[in-house]
Amino acid sequence: MKFGILVNEGPYNHQASDSAYRFAKAAIDKGHEIFRVFFYYDGVLNATAHSEPPSDDRNVIKNWQKLAADHKVDLVVCVAAGLRRGIVEASLAPGFRISGLGQLIEAGIQADRMITFGD
């Protein structure tokens, strides 16, 4: 089954991104496909290349990057939400790409299930 995931919150203010990541990982482990993860609202901050969490905490951004690298998961950051918050091509961690909101609607159409994690 193909899942689409919408992440509405940034990496460290809220558990949403962690929950989305755990869900995505479990889905892949069970043989499902993650069609796309779309980052919107403050969720675009999950794509920053400049996050350096303390070494005794989890690295939310690296978790997503590894998922993208290991399983070819499409991580899409909304261009409009990113512009508002200073997330542009130059600030992007590898593994993420910037595109339009249409990618979210397309995920809703193409994926078998769409699930949102947010506040």
Binding site: A26, K30, I115
Partner: peptide
């Protein structure tokens, strides 16, 4: 657990 979460999501038509 999260695997059960995924099973539930897959078994439901909408989330």
């Amino acid at each position: 657990d999260y695997e059960g979460f995924v099973d539930l999501a897959a078994a439901s038509s909408t989330i």
